[in-house]
Design a protein around this nucleic acid. Sequence first.
DNA 1: TAAATAATAGTACGAACGTACTAATTTATC
DNA 2: GATAAATTAGTACGTTCGTACTATTATTTA
Lengths: 188, 188
Amino acid sequence: MKQRRLTIVDAARDHIYHHGYGSTSYADIARETGLGKGNIQYHFKAKEDLLHAAIDQQIQDIREQLERWSLDCGTAYDCIERFIGMVEGNARNLSSYGCPMGSLNSELGKHERQLQGRARAMFDLYLRWLEARFRSFLPRKQAQARAEQLMVMAQGASLMAHAYEEPRIIRNQARIMRQWLADICDQS
Amino acid sequence: MKQRRLTIVDAARDHIYHHGYGSTSYADIARETGLGKGNIQYHFKAKEDLLHAAIDQQIQDIREQLERWSLDCGTAYDCIERFIGMVEGNARNLSSYGCPMGSLNSELGKHERQLQGRARAMFDLYLRWLEARFRSFLPRKQAQARAEQLMVMAQGASLMAHAYEEPRIIRNQARIMRQWLADICDQS
DNA sequence: TAAATAATAGTACGAACGTACTAATTTATC
DNA sequence: GATAAATTAGTACGTTCGTACTATTATTTA
């Protein structure tokens, strides 16, 4: 049954996001899904498999989200602003638990470099998508630099907001990002 | 013997920075200091005490560093640039292990909110110091916002550089921060 | 120097974890 | 409806961990 697998992965994503990968156990997933511990292990032999599946599903979600944005938004400017809007819209979760990508990368980078490589793929998706949008009105190298800078600001805002448990920090930085984006467009 | 305590705390700081608090055990500290496990526990009854001591010592280091900078640097502009220079100078470590403050806050924020409060004090030191420097040429609210923004950029740069294991990201962002600082000074 | 205190090492214990394994139950297939 | 496969639950095992405890050695103090 495909549905069962999805239930488990969803629970794993939530628990990893809220408590970190190292503090997520089979017992936790079993409790939160109401399934037996052995059942979880039947679907995911090793704990790493659970993490891979959680990341893969999140990558899929991001892909679909970016495709939707590409269709919905008119100009490249609107697309990039949609990204900023997403950050601001998640202010509460970001300040409570940090960024799902950022905090996972931070944790995995400490000891499990191989697993971190998978988590990094999430950043790649956003970075490449943003870079493509910036290329609508900027040369290649500048577009790359701007995409990187925007991700830096978004990640920094998430981390600081999480440290202070302060959604206001996200909102302040979102305003700054919008001004920053407008300035870039004015210049070009 | 005060020296013994310091040896343990130093080892704890390094290990927590490199592997995270959750992946730091008494056995690890014992191995890296060459002391017996029971001895470590004699000096620090609970694991939390070890973390508190590590943070306290780091806070002390930051305090002394900021005082030194306040004396050494001429203008407020120089002071702030010294901060940016520190980030850039640590590019290699930051890309290998992330920021000691940022990654610790990110980890503790997930489950141990009380311990995170102590870690947050490190951010406060830098933020207040930067804010005081910005106030040399900016009104209070603006100085506060600028300090926050600079920390956001520094933390975002560290996190992204760590995710990609790429010191280049730190260096790129340091250049952007310098330009950003120069623009602020021009405007005022 | 003798007694007391501090410091050090080692071990024991209970809990939690990832994993392996087994048995039972459900679902699918012919 | 019988047989095979997939699914589910539960348990057992070996390891690691934080902590508690004991014994031993070094240091201080009177």
